[in-house]
Design a protein around this nucleic acid. Sequence first.
DNA 1: ATGAAAGCGCTAACAA
DNA 2: TTGTTAGCGCTTTCAT
Lengths: 336, 336
Amino acid sequence: MSATIYDVAREAGVSMATVSRVLNDTAVVKEETKKRVQEAIAKLSYRPNAVARGLASKKTKTIGVIVPDVSAAFMAELVRGIEDVARMYNYHIILCNSDGSLQREIDLVGTMWEKQVDGIIFMSTSLKTEHIETFEEAQLPIVLCRTDDPERRIPSVNIDNERAAVDSVAVLAAKGCSRIAFVGAQNGEGTLTAKRRAGYQEALADRSLRPILIDSAGEDYASALSAIRSHLKMEAVDSILAANDEIAVAALHACQDVGKRVPEDVMIIGFDNTKLTQLTRPEITTVAQPMYDYGAVAMRFLTKLLQDEPIDTYSVILPHQVMERQSTKSIARPEA
Amino acid sequence: MSATIYDVAREAGVSMATVSRVLNDTAVVKEETKKRVQEAIAKLSYRPNAVARGLASKKTKTIGVIVPDVSAAFMAELVRGIEDVARMYNYHIILCNSDGSLQREIDLVGTMWEKQVDGIIFMSTSLKTEHIETFEEAQLPIVLCRTDDPERRIPSVNIDNERAAVDSVAVLAAKGCSRIAFVGAQNGEGTLTAKRRAGYQEALADRSLRPILIDSAGEDYASALSAIRSHLKMEAVDSILAANDEIAVAALHACQDVGKRVPEDVMIIGFDNTKLTQLTRPEITTVAQPMYDYGAVAMRFLTKLLQDEPIDTYSVILPHQVMERQSTKSIARPEA
DNA sequence: ATGAAAGCGCTAACAA
DNA sequence: TTGTTAGCGCTTTCAT
């Protein structure tokens, strides 16, 4: 298993160039010699050394994946999408977590250059100028994934988050809700939550409804639970749009805690269609984001870039879908 | 950003050997020359090419991670543990999914060899002879992670699954349960579920209790739900030990469906301490498996192997813990 | 303390 | 159709 191409050449009585040719199918080789080479390869259990190959060809068949945290909800599914498509095109992925730190993201792009990856799939919250500069310096094909680039300078794959929030509000409004609250952390610009909040506000303005913003300290269950619970005690709402599913579950429990029934008294819609939403009772209506597809499409996009295939658009928008479940089910009320 | 070591050498007026020395700190270099070299590096924004380095040194500072499916529950956390420790030791990881297919696992080890990784962290269900043969052929340091090797031929990191099941039964028994059921898929030998079932049976035998095995078609929510529901209609149980948390949630819902209260009528214990268990009401008691630690410890183990550090034991057992929550809470019953 | 030179295992002109 | 020959960018003896 550690013979070199030279050993194979000698065993088959040809030159290493010929072996290389049959290996890469890069030129026509007489059927008979090809067979001899293949036998030699089998006999010696030869396997090409990808590192040497990478040095000589300046292509490593490896792409760098920079993600805030693989272990975050559903990120792994996205990574799986990347890996599946990467495999189809004979690429491998080097996976790195940035924890959302700008400095680390920048460093990682540098390291990826050192590793001579053929391209990068980059995930973060929102792009800053430092990112752009780093990308330009690295001179590597890069595809953004589930990451906002306000000025659309870098190829990217996304859903329309604002639109998704607008759609969710529409569902609620259609069921007669008018006191619609939004729950999410009040964090920076350009984050997913910010976009969703913007869509929510737009949709409420269109209907001349008063926005009810519930600011949870973080995007996690615990902080959302207490924020919602205390808000519910102050002010009645008939529906809650949550920035993500974990918050939606918190909303459900908060309602139960203060004696409100879901969906009879309060309707709830979450975001992301994680497994959670089907393991609660009632099951929670949520906006399905195609996590796997994010990855798969981004990787496919990157392969196009790498092979100079024609590209239709540099900012791909994936479809989203409001998955209606029990938490927004209209109840047929018995006539009085 | 694409100067070579040769450019740096010329810029600093030294030989490339000297540049290499300051880069790798591999020999003493006069303070002054070192400074000149570092300036040249900065001036040219030089970055060493890791591929060339790998070819010359035969070390790539890359390790292969073979996992059934990153997107499976909590696998990502394990991978995160690997990556964090890898980073501490200046390694990067190439991540691949095998979907548990033996053929693919074997192929992947080969590809990892081609990529010249310095070592492999391998995850699967149970090891077969084909695995061992492949590992030997590859001649690479390999650490098994959360993967059973009945004959302990390969270094590994695990918890004691049988013992964990025994402990769970003990908790139930201590609360007065005697009709204790186990729910899990009736799949192959050497799987996690099989180990847990074995522990369950052992613990019941010790107490002269009759085992109640509920066989769900798969390890997922839906099949477990229907299996448990129909079993509950046939036979009363006072507690359920589930092979994993998803099944535990199914058990909870099945009980609710047939009008049993948890924990008053039926107590439930899950396995894995996933987030799910805290998002149900009641919250579910579960066996905490250190997913992150599996990865972190396995990677640390591998670095020891790679640096010939002394090893105490080749099969590391990590601690588990029964996290008691509401689903096993003894209720103080009012005196009659 | 530094330099010269020989590879590492492969690809890719260029010849033949 | 096949072989010869330079590299790719670095590490690593071996000299000096």
